[in-house]
Lab assay of single mutants.
Amino acid sequence: MASQGTKRSYEQMETDGERQNATEIRASVGKMIGGIGRFYIQMCTELKLSDYEGRLIQNSLTIERMVLSAFDERRNKYLEEHPSAGKDPKKTGGPIYRRVNGKWMRELILYDKEEIRRIWRQANNGDDATAGLTHMMIWHSNLNDATYQRTRALVRTGMDPRMCSLMQGSTLPRRSGAAGAAVKGVGTMVMELVRMIKRGINDRNFWRGENGRKTRIAYERMCNILKGKFQTAAQKAMMDQVRESRNPGNAEFEDLTFLARSALILRGSVAHKSCLPACVYGPAVASGYDFEREGYSLVGIDPFRLLQNSQVYSLIRPNENPAHKSQLVWMACHSAAFEDLRVLSFIKGTKVLPRGKLSTRGVQIASNENMETMESSTLELRSRYWAIRTRSGGNTNQQRASAGQISIQPTFSVQRNLPFDRTTIMAAFNGNTEGRTSDMRTEIIRMMESARPEDVSFQGRGVFELSDEKAASPIVPSFDMSNEGSYFFGDNAEEYDN
């Protein structure tokens, strides 16, 4: 783990906690998980779902989305002020799938948001429990990260689609708070800032007046979040320049895209947490497990152990491969979309394939898809080993990566060399080191050039047997250095459309 220093740990961010010791953190995270579980059980009762239907990941996603929508204050306010045809701002819903006479049927349900809020609060001892809501947002974000390569979004903001390893959390809503900021990748933060800068260039009043003052505060806050992700002084200094700019424009845009590229080699610290679907927490609570009393951590053995003992089902389209669908969801559960496939294969105990080789589309089923041909199958979400999630980018030494994705962002704290394609990355730096950030740029390029592919990161860190909950005997895996390590390699994943 990167030293926490003055930073709060993510469990504290996750639970809005002030400084807590490890036991208190485990208890408050457990409380959050228990609340999600209780809410899910109650919703299944309301909807009269069978046990099997309640364990269907598509039903879980609909129920999670309903509660997130019920608590989305800004959108609710907007919907009330701008009524649109056929949208009731006070209601929320989605597809629920039921097994009827041996076939899967889709039923569109509609609930009062007020009623959903009441059920959620009741499951969370009367609190709004925003930490639990954020947790579900991060699960949705991790699922998107594993399912889609955001080529269009990258290109629109002047970045290269091969930089997708920097895009963790790119679909997280803005209201996801400190826990959300911690899991956002460098590219995601750059993209958010670039969008602001572009608006400022096109709209003279963007930075002016009372609204402009708020915009400015948001801009500086985002700059500080991004600065905190960088691990070298030169990158941090460049972020200070971007933040202090009187009138952010093209120079800042250039600096930010430069920094994003540099992060492929001088990786930023991005938190990883295993956020599971509500249909995993519900049955665990129903079986009598007391998360608050037992304590829970999002970055240790607990999620692995929970998945070892969970039964989750998914709808499967006619030509999809259930094992591939399982891999997709497994990666999402562990926030591992940008991790090295060699490491993932070792931990999972079966070969993890790149996205383009998977015969599976996303987990969600569109409303126009034919239910007649839908089957369902068990998702295999178990693992051979477990490993500690990392909050750091690993040290800054790398190795060759593949054509589709030119770097990785480690999820697990496991000893290995970190793949990246130096030639491709360095070719993108057209040696432009003039301007006010020239000395920093020169320094950053120097550090990137001296990074050695064969150097090892996370020295001495290994994986653990599932029986080793105290992480007492690390097993340090050895990897084939020459092997392909990137998930979005030469990829044809669908595009994420909101």
Rank of each mutant, 00 (worst) to 15 (best):
A2H: 04
Q4V: 04
T6E: 01
T6L: 15
T6G: 00
R8C: 03
Y10K: 01
M13D: 03
G17P: 15
T23Y: 14
T23F: 14
I25L: 06
I25S: 03
R26D: 05
A27L: 13
S28A: 07
S28D: 00
V29F: 11
V29S: 02
V29E: 05
M32T: 09
G34A: 15
G35I: 03
G35P: 01
G35H: 08
G35R: 11
R38I: 13
F39T: 10
Y40A: 12
I41P: 00
C44T: 13
L47E: 14
L49W: 09
S50F: 01
D51M: 13
D51G: 05
G54N: 13
R55I: 08
R55H: 07
L56I: 15
I57V: 15
N59F: 02
L61G: 03
L61C: 04
E64R: 05
R65Q: 02
R65S: 09
L68W: 08
A70F: 03
D72E: 13
E80T: 10
E81F: 11
H82I: 03
H82V: 05
H82C: 14
S84N: 15
S84K: 01
G86T: 14
K87R: 14
K87H: 06
D88T: 00
K90P: 00
K90E: 11
G93A: 09
G94T: 05
G94Y: 06
P95G: 02
P95H: 14
P95R: 08
R98M: 11
R99W: 07
N101D: 14
N101W: 08
G102I: 12
G102N: 09
W104V: 02
W104E: 04
W104C: 11
E107Y: 09
E107W: 10
D112A: 15
D112W: 11
D112T: 10
E115Y: 09
E115R: 01
E115Q: 11
R118H: 09
W120F: 08
R121K: 15
N124P: 00
N124L: 05
N124W: 05
N125P: 05
G126A: 15
A129L: 12
A131T: 05
A131Q: 15
G132A: 13
G132H: 02
T134S: 15
H135G: 02
H135S: 13
H135C: 15
H135N: 11
I138W: 06
H140R: 05
S141E: 06
N142K: 13
L143I: 06
L143P: 02
N144H: 07
D145K: 04
A146F: 11
A153H: 02
L154G: 00
V155L: 05
D160Y: 08
P161F: 05
P161Y: 01
M163T: 14
S165K: 00
M167H: 04
Q168L: 02
S170A: 09
S170G: 09
T171M: 02
R174H: 01
R174T: 08
R175H: 07
R175E: 02
S176R: 00
A179V: 09
A181L: 12
A181Y: 05
A182W: 09
G185F: 02
V186Q: 07
V186Y: 04
G187T: 13
V190N: 14
V190E: 09
E192D: 13
L193V: 11
V194P: 00
R195E: 02
R195L: 02
I197W: 05
I197P: 02
K198V: 07
R199S: 12
I201W: 05
N202F: 11
N202W: 01
D203I: 06
R204P: 07
R204Q: 12
W207M: 10
G209T: 02
E210H: 06
E210P: 04
G212T: 13
G212V: 07
G212C: 07
R213I: 08
T215C: 06
I217C: 06
I217P: 04
E220L: 11
R221Q: 08
M222E: 13
L226G: 01
G228V: 14
G228N: 03
K229H: 08
F230Y: 12
T232H: 11
A233E: 03
Q235D: 05
K236D: 05
K236H: 12
M238N: 03
D240F: 08
Q241I: 06
V242P: 00
S245K: 01
R246N: 06
N250R: 04
E252F: 05
E252T: 10
E252N: 10
F258W: 05
F258R: 01
L259Y: 06
L259H: 02
A260L: 00
S262F: 11
L266K: 08
L266D: 04
S269Q: 15
S269P: 10
A271Q: 00
A271K: 08
H272I: 02
K273M: 07
C275H: 02
C275G: 14
A278L: 11
A278V: 14
A278N: 05
C279Q: 03
C279S: 15
Y281H: 09
A284I: 03
G288P: 04
G288S: 14
Y289R: 09
R293V: 15
E294N: 15
G295V: 10
S297C: 09
L298D: 06
L298M: 13
I301M: 11
D302H: 14
P303A: 12
P303N: 03
R305G: 14
L306T: 15
L307K: 01
L307T: 11
Q308G: 01
Y313S: 15
S314I: 11
N319V: 02
E320F: 05
P322G: 11
A323Q: 14
A323H: 14
K325Q: 11
S326M: 06
Q327S: 13
Q327C: 14
V329I: 15
W330E: 01
M331V: 12
A332G: 15
C333T: 15
C333H: 01
C333M: 15
S335C: 14
A337K: 03
A337D: 04
E339M: 07
D340K: 03
D340R: 05
L344C: 07
L344Y: 14
S345E: 08
G349M: 07
T350V: 04
T350N: 03
L358E: 03
S359C: 11
T360C: 12
R361K: 12
R361G: 12
G362T: 03
A366G: 15
N368H: 11
E369L: 05
E369W: 10
E372T: 15
T373P: 11
T373Y: 07
M374A: 12
S376V: 01
S376R: 05
S377F: 15
S377Q: 05
T378R: 15
T378V: 01
T378L: 00
E380C: 15
S383P: 04
R384H: 00
Y385C: 12
Y385F: 14
I388K: 11
I388H: 06
R389M: 11
R391C: 06
S392K: 03
S392L: 03
G393C: 15
G393L: 00
G394V: 08
N395P: 05
T396D: 01
Q399K: 15
Q399H: 13
Q399G: 07
R400C: 09
A401Y: 00
S402W: 02
G404D: 10
Q405V: 00
I406D: 00
S407C: 05
S407N: 08
I408C: 14
Q409L: 01
P410Q: 04
F412Y: 12
S413E: 00
S413F: 00
V414R: 00
V414P: 00
V414F: 05
Q415V: 09
L418G: 08
P419V: 12
F420H: 15
T423R: 10
T424K: 01
N430Y: 13
N430C: 15
N432I: 13
G435R: 07
S438E: 01
R441A: 11
R441E: 09
R441G: 07
T442K: 06
E443A: 05
I444S: 11
M448Y: 05
M448I: 07
M448R: 04
S450E: 10
S450Y: 09
S450L: 13
P453K: 08
E454N: 14
S457F: 10
Q459W: 14
R461W: 10
V463N: 07
V463R: 07
V463S: 05
V463H: 06
F464M: 05
F464T: 06
L466Y: 10
E469K: 12
E469C: 09
K470Y: 03
A472H: 15
A472D: 06
I475P: 05
V476A: 14
S478R: 15
F479G: 00
D480P: 11
D480H: 14
E484V: 13
E484D: 09
G485T: 01
F488N: 04
F488D: 06
F489V: 05
D491I: 04
E494P: 06
D497A: 06
D497C: 00
D497W: 07
N498P: 00
N498V: 12
N498Q: 15
